[in-house]
Design a binder for these strands. Sequence first.
DNA 1: TTGTGTCGTGAGAGCGCTCTCATATCTCGG
DNA 2: CCGAGATATGAGAGCGCTCTCACGACACAA
Lengths: 342, 342
Amino acid sequence: MNELTLEDIAKLVGVHRSTVSRVINGSPKVSPEVRERVLKAIRETGYQPNAAARTLASQRSWMIGLVLPRSVSVFFTDPYFPQLTQGIAFGCNNHDYTLCLFLVGNKEDEEKILPRLSRRGMLDGILIQSGTPDDILIDQLNASSIPSAMIGRPNEPEGLSYIDVDNVRAAELATDHLINIGYHRIATITGPKGSTVTADRIEGYQKALKKSGRSIEKALIAQGDFSEVSGYNAMKVLLAKQPDAVFAASDIMAAGAIRAVKEVGLKIPEDIAFVGFDDIPLGTLTTVSLTTIRQPILKFGVRAVELLIDLIENGTTPPQQIIMDAELIIRDSCGAKKLGMS
Amino acid sequence: MNELTLEDIAKLVGVHRSTVSRVINGSPKVSPEVRERVLKAIRETGYQPNAAARTLASQRSWMIGLVLPRSVSVFFTDPYFPQLTQGIAFGCNNHDYTLCLFLVGNKEDEEKILPRLSRRGMLDGILIQSGTPDDILIDQLNASSIPSAMIGRPNEPEGLSYIDVDNVRAAELATDHLINIGYHRIATITGPKGSTVTADRIEGYQKALKKSGRSIEKALIAQGDFSEVSGYNAMKVLLAKQPDAVFAASDIMAAGAIRAVKEVGLKIPEDIAFVGFDDIPLGTLTTVSLTTIRQPILKFGVRAVELLIDLIENGTTPPQQIIMDAELIIRDSCGAKKLGMS
DNA sequence: TTGTGTCGTGAGAGCGCTCTCATATCTCGG
DNA sequence: CCGAGATATGAGAGCGCTCTCACGACACAA
């Protein structure tokens, strides 16, 4: 339908290719009269510059990649990643970049994806989810020359640019809250071992306990993997230790844990109080509304894109780190409201 | 790190650029001896062909776009779309295509996205979610010359290629099941008005009722919008009409409806039986395991990619339609097991 | 020997842009 | 009226590939 080139438009208007190019790229060195004529021709013909030719000549593709490693694909049912992806997509929309999505499904994909990522001239930069135990891709990526930023603090953050939520502070916030309300046996359900998120949230939890002069009871720390079932199972174990409050490292796990609590006939928050993490809409699926730590996931994605674009345009040295704050949202599951303490 | 060109490799090996190109593209017209030498040089240097140059010269980018219209973004918390996206991503991995994701966030995006999509030389083909009421983008896209396939039957499917699940048949299956077990007042909670999915599932529901000689009671059809809350609200309305079974057009809505049923102290399936739709993992979030229609969402995504690739490689005429089957998964919420009828 | 065919390789013209540099035109102070 | 400086436009060399065509080398039948 539309196989016009710059040259065609130029001929149509009676100017040189270069001039049309200037108009398209918003160069100021074009007289208003000529600019108008060119724009008119472009409008009337519906001309669209060829992306590949542009990329080849300018060495800029205006595309960025988002890589979600294999460990993530499993969690794709957790609303966190879809929402993050959405935030990143919106960030791209804002800045007129195109988003390429790379989901690693299996071992085989993992090997094939790196060459795809580093095809020169294809991506201006790469965003990659990190902080998970299998950070092989990340090392390889950083060895390449393409600008890249990590989402979530990597295991070895030296010299890398990344964006993250202050998980230590956030977990501390949640635990502080439970302490302040007056709970004594505060348990926690953690994420999978080895990830920085998990480590940070445990650190915040312990920091709050210590701050209030309490000892850490290992038996009150149960491991999950961010899935609903893992929360359910972790809670089963915790119930034997009789906690009066639980800080779950994700809302989904909190939902599972709450299911386990209800099954044995206990009430929330009367018998066991809950604070979750994420503030995902699913909160309504649990019969009691969940007190939680709200992560600005969407904004997080948008900022990640901005970080990457900054890296692309201004170079990657020195590396940049962005740490965003999370916020405590008090609802019913922690019991604060009933105590008149909200 | 790696700014080599074809020419460099050619010089290194002592052959012409063309020969190296042939090796890379797997042409048979290269002697085994030369091929080996070229491959060796490529291996040793870590050479990667420049994607933009390739695209420009060959008019093929090996990239496809996935467009999720605005109405979808709202639903992105529903696991359906993330899973679909995942399926499509895997399909791309399988065939060495790169996936570009276009999420429409607002009215403004909607206008900016079409030019981005139709940038020539950028995408080999486009997959777009359709069947929603605001199919403006779809019309515009089909007016362009770029190969495209719809996901979900469009409102006006003439001349278009699309892939869909047989929603009529699937809803009929669900309703038949409830009828066979012996329920009499079978209600349904539908998706949003105007979408083809909604229309099809209602049609299947009614078809099953008619087939068994029953009349359609309008009051037993309540509208939702695929969200949990809408299921909850719809059920509130339906409760007054005293149904003994409900077919919900999505699992998420079923979850909401179940919440409403429990709130008034009724039991599932004893007082009200349920069949959902989708078979998403969240089924475990409802306390009773949900009988549902399983959609092969992941496979659906993979097939969609294959359809599009076929279109790209073999032309778009005649348009192709793929209709996939769904399957009834019997669990506890329909009561069949208790009746020994599974 | 000559002609016909096959096979591997080289040559070179694009693909449709961007960007630097040269050139033409205009402005204005002295 | 001239020349310096600013400004608008044209010219043309790439960007790094693909692909068609031409050509030399060799095999084999007549």
